[in-house]
Design a protein around this nucleic acid. Structure first.
Lengths: 231, 231
DNA sequence: AGATGTGAACCAATTCACAGCA
DNA sequence: TGCTGTGAATTGGTTCACATCT
């Protein structure tokens, strides 16, 4: 049945941006930032799309979900659009992040430039290994040193740091337990690098980044390119 | 056991598995491997789906694209299904991988267990930093030591190692140049960790893993959970 | 003229619900 | 009886093509 759109027909941006669009906004944001730095004042959908690796139709449709921020016959004002996307993504706030697991991957995350650069602040590092506890790691762009705290203090670190985002960079075997503790300490968004499926209560978002999965997807397509071997 | 179809059965699995399905096969594969290790002989779609974080309807539809490997009223034979998925994904071959950029992230990738565990072999490490060149890094499960080679030797490393997959873990500024060189040396699949959009000729697959993007997507949803601030 | 913004058509993926088989 | 496998319905996303506005 199609009828009632209930409340919000009126204005342009009725709440609810398609998930596929949300996933591309960070790319547009990064590309636009670079353009702005280089002093480019306006871009057409065609140019921005090419630089972002999408089609111009898709780009325009994506941006249309945010509002009418372009000028017909001209294009988009770079600075203005960067700001609008940043606002939509919530990059104007600063998000406090705790990283659990400070092996090579955790280290890489802690001093990853893009991490701190856009509104994310590492406020805590936790590790189970006593040898790593106490180490001071430069986290974020400003290179502020953060001390690695023992696993037992996970809750304290989250609470004291008022973190709402947790990053899990532990072995798979520890991931669910760490997740549970992060959630009970108040974390409501989790980025999971451990190759494990996490279950969380409703209201907690989880995104996973799985290196092995990505490689396997590549392998699948690679296999089809060479119809040589028929096992 | 089962009646082995050996050669592609020609009928059920017409070529062309949906991309969304391909992206989930690695998860099923991992979950099934664990079940098999624990001695579980059969699983229902309901159980496997729960352990994989999907719905049972989706799981059955996914598996149906591979063939009819289940038994009505019973479920799926764990070992058998692991093998079928592995074959479909090409995990029965061994894929040779070169990693460019051996910072923290590159290190993490090189000795990531899941890397070597399922048919992927690191055959080369390359870095632009003279201080890192010469270092020997234990890559993969068997801990084989691989020496970091200078950037000028990138092509040699790819050719000698007969690598078809390249991993880019360099700064964004170097990514496109590295990509071009990998491709011209014969790499046809690329996993890109640098926050940059890569362009490649047709026939070369690129997948990207972007930490900043993932965090920004989380932030977007996080923002909507707390309708406090209205900027 | 030259670009955006968007309905309409199209295509892909998910969900539903049940027929079919062990 | 119980669970798989799958058409049909639905939802979500992409592409097309053009009306609209500067």
């Amino acid at each position: 049945m199609r009828v009632v759109p209930l409340s919000p027909p009126s204005d342009v941006s009725r709440r609810g941006i398609p998930e596929a669009t949300v996933a591309r906004l960070p790319i547009y944001h990064r590309v636009l930032s670079h353009l702005a730095e280089r002093g480019v004042a306006t871009v057409s959908s065609e140019e921005l799309a090419a630089a972002s690796g999408v089609t111009s139709a898709k780009l325009r449709k994506d941006l249309s979900h945010l509002g009418s921020y372009g000028t017909r016959g001209v294009g988009y004002d770079t600075e203005y659009l960067v700001y609008q996307i940043a606002r939509e993504l919530g990059l104007t706030q600063d998000w406090r992040v705790v990283i659990v697991g400070v092996g090579n991957l955790g280290h890489a995350l802690a001093n990853y430039g893009g991490f701190a650069s856009r509104g994310f602040r590492v406020v805590g590092l936790v590790d189970a290994d006593p040898l790593r506890v106490g180490e001071r790691i430069p986290a974020g762009r400003d290179g502020e040193l953060i001390e690695v705290r023992p696993l037992v203090e996970l809750e304290t670190v989250v609470l004291d740091g008022e973190a709402s985002i947790g990053v899990i960079a532990t072995p798979a075997s520890a991931a669910q337990a760490v997740c549970d503790r992060l959630v009970s300490a108040g974390v409501t968004s989790i980025l999971n690098f451990a190759p494990a499926v996490l279950s969380t209560p409703a209201g907690v978002d989880v995104r996973k980044v799985d290196l092995a999965t990505e490689l396997q997807i590549l392998a699948f397509h690679e296999q089809r390119k060479h119809p040589e071997v028929r096992a």
